[in-house]
């Protein structure tokens, strides 16, 4: 079983992520599916992360955290975020099958980033749902 998005969808996804997040000063954005595949990967040109491993771990981690949520009687957690000294990472579910991973430094406030991510996720939904 495989799936694909057409050129137009991928272009549109890149545009949304570029304008909504990279232009804001985010270091790296990766849209992945829950199997750990990378759909779109953008960065500010200065990042050299191993995004494939990152995607595999993010998908696994998201699955683990969702199961933890269920165990304590939550549907899902609304904030998935790790804070580091220089880099932070934020996860946001997109529909049932996708995950938006955002890596950003301390010059971007989490509160503002969350607003921008929410907005980007709405746009992404529209694009992904235009499939077929």
């Amino acid at each position: 079983m495989s799936y694909t998005f057409d050129h137009k969808q991928l272009d549109a996804l890149e545009e949304v992520l570029q304008q909504g997040l990279i232009d804001l000063g985010v270091h790296c954005v990766v849209l992945i599916d829950m199997s750990g595949n990378i759909i779109v990967n953008l960065d500010n040109g200065r990042m050299k992360h191993d995004v494939y491993s990152l995607a595999a771990l993010a998908a696994g981690n998201f699955g683990a955290v969702s199961t933890m949520a269920k165990i304590i009687g939550e549907d899902e957690f609304s904030l998935l975020f790790h804070k580091g000294k220089k880099e932070n990472i934020h996860f946001s579910k997109v529909m049932k099958d996708f995950l938006l991973v955002t890596i950003f430094g301390k010059d971007v406030s989490l509160g503002f980033l969350r607003l921008k991510v929410t907005e980007a996720v709405e746009e992404i939904k529209k694009i992904l749902q235009s499939q077929q």
């Binding site: 804001l24 000063g25 010059d107 509160g111 503002f112 607003l115 921008k116 929410t118 907005e119």
Partner: peptide
């Protein structure tokens, strides 16, 4: 403005 606010606004607020 929320998400459409200028990215520097939160910094200046702080």
């Amino acid at each position: 403005k929320k998400a459409h606010a200028h990215p520097d606004a939160v910094k200046v607020l702080n």
